[in-house]
Design a protein around this nucleic acid. Sequence first.
DNA 1: ATCCTTAAGGATATTGTATATCCGCAATGC
DNA 2: GCATTGCGGATATACAATATCCTTAAGGAT
Lengths: 134, 134
Amino acid sequence: MQLRGPVEWALHCCAVLAGLAPGRYLPTRDLADFHGVPKEYLSKALQALSQAGIVESTLGPSGGYRLARAPDRITFLDVVEAVEGRTPSFVCTNIRRNNPCLSPAEVKSLCTDAKPCAIARVMWDADRAWRDKL
Amino acid sequence: MQLRGPVEWALHCCAVLAGLAPGRYLPTRDLADFHGVPKEYLSKALQALSQAGIVESTLGPSGGYRLARAPDRITFLDVVEAVEGRTPSFVCTNIRRNNPCLSPAEVKSLCTDAKPCAIARVMWDADRAWRDKL
DNA sequence: ATCCTTAAGGATATTGTATATCCGCAATGC
DNA sequence: GCATTGCGGATATACAATATCCTTAAGGAT
């Protein structure tokens, strides 16, 4: 279970943008050169940040990106979730229901929304603890 | 960032083995049938658990797996790390060092073991919080 | 002793996702 | 008008996850 390159890039880009002079924009090319990462691919991560409302952009010469709000109002979680998505790190596929010994009625009562299995609960708690730290 | 099928299987297998009569073994085939997952692939996860000393195995008829110690001495983290590995969820690739504006001396002083960059520190703290919950 | 069963581990095929690039479009500033 | 830039779609490539197969060695039953 590992976070991808784009997440690291997005975090560092935000750090750079946080130090940018007010009103200025920084284009993708500069951010890419600055970090030594592929410009076109980094662009995807920046677009995700843009759609999440973390950064805002302007077109044309002297265009680029800047933070959409004060740095202290942007959390690591904001950036990570914008790029990586919001799906929890553990997905319960209800494999307990595959037990061939169970009757259909028993299957239906397993891992319902009201009472997820204990394993999923623990994994989800840990996932929440992780996100709370970001 | 998502945990894979084998991790979920391993957790459920340990749960099943925890309810096994003392001294008994449960073969891979039964665990696979019970959970409706491919036997050969599940076998790899069980081998990982075995190598980690979480379960122990016996060959021959009536062979299979059982827990190597009491269930309350096996944590979720033990199982997850045995199957998924121990590499942290965030890996710092030191992209700050790629900055073409930096002198070689400055590059060397960035993201050293003694003083990793602030971003990596936060991500590692979150990773630790996640593992502490497991 | 022989045969069946089982885990262990290597090799390999298949699938899927991450990575990376390219192109056309629309908007901005000169 | 023109160069620049972000945006989104489409597509190619690389790599990891998934899944299966096969051989080996060991335990148990007859």
